[in-house]
Amino acid sequence: MDSKRRLPPPLFSARCRACWLVAGVVVLVVASFLSLDLHLAAFASSESLASMGRFVREFFPPDLSPSFVGRVAAGAWETLAMSALGTLLAVLLGVLMALPASHARGGARAGMRLLLNALRSVPELVWAAMLLISAGLGPFAGTLALAIHTSGVLGRLFAEAVENAPPGPGAALRTQGAGTVRVYLYATLPQVLPQLMSYTLYRWENNIRAAAVLGVVGAGGLGQLLMFHMGLFQMDKTATVLIAMLVLVALVDGASFALRRWLTR
């Protein structure tokens, strides 16, 4: 009798919200395959595979001449500097916008939330393309693009962290007559600081990748070298730039992971 009562639930139930959600996702995926003109058979044909093989072979051996490796190292440093400075500016802006986005009342809070949504809804590549008109070619436009987009992301994450902070220390300061800014600086911010640092390091990892791509529109760094040599079909030099991107991202990911582990101890 007990075994009959404990039968496993059916795979699909009309009262199960998760089942309907999964079914909707499956329908969306199937509709996407049907609506897109995907030439999967041509992609997997022997002719396409042979062309891809010839293309990959052109990358080897990479150009490891000292002069070019020096240029790639300078581009890697420029990419790293763009990501670090852009993230730092975004942290400062995010901290400033987190307080009104979390504790302001009425229209001020809604307006700040709307601003954060607008900043992060525009990708870094689009920000860089628009800023090139005023800032010109080079890393300055890329740094500003990273800072603007990331400030919207971090501002929203910081605001959520501030809202979820324990209210006890802040309430104790308010009973002593402390204002909102002092409560934020001396009670709320110290509690959420490890979480803010974790968010910052994670976004720095993302900005390394984004800074490497911003060179597509002329924002400097490894991306600009990549587009230049790929446009000239210099695949040996392109391979060297790609290797530098992989090494840079791996080093930053490892350092960021170690720092996050240290912060959460």
Rank of each mutant, 00 (worst) to 15 (best):
R109E: 14
S65K: 08
G70A: 15
G70F: 00
S102A: 15
A118S: 10
V72T: 10
A108G: 02
G111H: 09
R120Y: 11
R71P: 00
L89R: 00
H103N: 04
G75C: 05
A81K: 12
R71A: 14
H103Q: 10
E124F: 02
M97V: 12
G86A: 09
S102I: 14
G106E: 07
L99E: 14
V91C: 11
L64G: 10
L88E: 00
R109Y: 08
L88S: 08
H103L: 11
G111T: 08
L99Q: 10
L115F: 08
S102R: 04
G70W: 01
A81E: 15
G111N: 13
G75A: 15
V72E: 12
L92Y: 01
L116Q: 12
A84Q: 05
H103K: 10
R113N: 14
V72L: 04
V122E: 11
V69F: 12
G75L: 11
N117A: 15
A73N: 05
A118H: 04
M97E: 07
W77C: 06
A90Y: 02
D63A: 10
A98V: 01
L88C: 05
L85E: 09
P66W: 12
G75E: 09
L80M: 10
G106R: 09
L80S: 11
S67W: 05
A101R: 02
M112I: 14
V91D: 06
M112A: 06
G86L: 13
L99T: 03
G75K: 06
A98R: 02
L119K: 04
L88V: 14
G111W: 01
L99M: 08
M82D: 12
E78N: 03
P100Y: 03
M112W: 04
E78Q: 15
A110C: 02
A98I: 02
A73M: 14
A118Y: 05
N117L: 12
W77E: 14
R109L: 10
L119E: 13
V69E: 13
T79G: 03
L64A: 13
L89H: 00
L89T: 00
A76M: 08
G86F: 09
P123T: 00
G94D: 13
P62N: 13
G111M: 12
A108S: 06
L119Q: 05
L96W: 05
D63F: 04
D63M: 06
F68E: 04
L89C: 13
L88R: 00
M97G: 03
A76C: 06
L96K: 00
L92M: 11
V95G: 01
N117S: 11
F68P: 11
R113M: 08
A84Y: 07
H103C: 02
R105W: 12
A73Y: 07
R105C: 07
L88Y: 00
G107A: 15
L80C: 03
H103R: 09
L64T: 13
V91R: 02
L89I: 15
L92T: 06
A76R: 11
S102M: 05
L96P: 01
A104I: 06
P62G: 12
A90P: 12
L116C: 09
A81C: 07
R105F: 02
A110M: 08
V69Y: 04
V122P: 00
S83F: 06
P100D: 14
P62F: 03
W77Q: 07
L116V: 08
G86E: 14
S65F: 09
T87P: 09
A110S: 15
V69G: 09
P100R: 02
S121M: 07
